[in-house]
Design a protein around this nucleic acid. Structure first.
Lengths: 191, 191
DNA sequence: GAGGGAGGTAATCGAATGATTACTAGGGAG
DNA sequence: CTCCCTAGTAATCATTCGATTACCTCCCTC
């Protein structure tokens, strides 16, 4: 296989592993196993584990920006409310991956690491900028949209779906995202 | 010193370390140094690093519940909006610690670990329940309040204050929490 | 069919880290 | 004084993990 394709494969595998265990908790060996290659090869392809994580983050934010841009471009005449729904749906689709948004979440709370922190901040700001300029959200609308997203990520990250038999947890999950409630449960139960 | 007091001291130190580096990234040695004791003593006091982290989480959520309850009890006749402001202020005060809410955030994204995940979910649900029952928030009000909190935690976690010279970042930080903007910057610059 | 470059692996190393063990200072009770 | 319990530490162990080194094996070209 060409090294370029293998790279993409490894990044995909790494996204799942980093999303599951976080930057420090993930091992290059777990990534290698998930990608079906040897551990030294993973390290040599990216140089360091950190570089691999940064590659994952770049792909994650690229995907986020691409998908959001597609929604915006597909609805040139939509008002904010319509756009909010469309972008919310796109976010839900991205959530189905779990690794993507959770890798970003892990980066967001790892701001103390210089390289990861800088990448995380740039990623967050690029999404915020997209909402402000291209989607024409007000600052408050963008803030609320992103806050809602952080909440959704948190639900998935802590596997709140495992508590779905608790009426309080069910109410919370349904309220956070009615259309994604089933997905949250499934993502919590998986694996 | 009595072992009981020493325990509290170590938990306080551990909260800062776990908030800074996360559960996996934090070392018992760093906690020990921060608390001014030896590394084996930290381990022996709590049995395992995980038990120490769980102790930190319990103290964090206790503090959160205590402070929120105090605000609610101090404003028995307040409407939702007044209560929201009061609780938001209390949240800002808790944020000043950084270790407290960031330790919780790290737990939220570490849901795949059985013990940590269960504790994290219980913690989140207990806060949600408090808002719903004692503060009489609607599900939507509680959701929005918590979503806003997750967003604030994220800003602190990724040290967004470091980008405060970027007008976009400044707008975002000011918009997320005007009264805590300076704090976010200070927490990002500290250490 | 010889050579070499691309795409890998096996073996191993060194550092970090959670945990364990064995030891010790000190002060209060009898 | 002496015993012993509480509150610790120093030394060390076993593992894990990222990284390095050396090697292998196709396939393509000449």
């Amino acid at each position: 296989m060409r090294v370029e394709d293998r790279r993409e494969l490894v990044i995909t595998a790494a996204m799942a592993v980093f999303g599951e265990r976080g930057y420090v908790g993930a091992t290059t060996d777990a990534v290698a196993k998930a990608a079906g290659v040897s551990q030294p090869y993973v390290v040599r392809m990216f140089g360091t584990k950190e570089a691999l994580f940064l590659a994952v983050l770049h792909r994650a934010v690229d995907r986020l920006l691409t998908d959001f841009t597609a929604v915006i471009d597909a609805n040139p005449d939509s008002d904010t409310e319509q756009l909010r729904l469309g972008l919310g749906n796109a976010y839900g689709d991205l959530l189905a991956d779990r690794g993507l948004l959770l890798s970003l979440m892990h980066a967001f709370v790892a701001g103390s690491d210089p390289a990861i922190g800088a990448t995380a901040r740039a990623a967050f700001l690029s999404v915020y900028s997209l909402l402000r300029s291209r989607a024409r959200f007000t600052a408050e609308e963008a803030r609320d949209f992103l806050a809602h997203g952080m909440m959704l990520n948190t639900m998935v990250g802590m596997r709140m779906g495992l508590e779905i038999d608790d009426p309080v947890a069910r109410e919370l999950v349904e309220c956070v995202s009615p259309i994604n409630a089933d997905l949250i449960v499934r993502l919590a139960t998986d694996r």
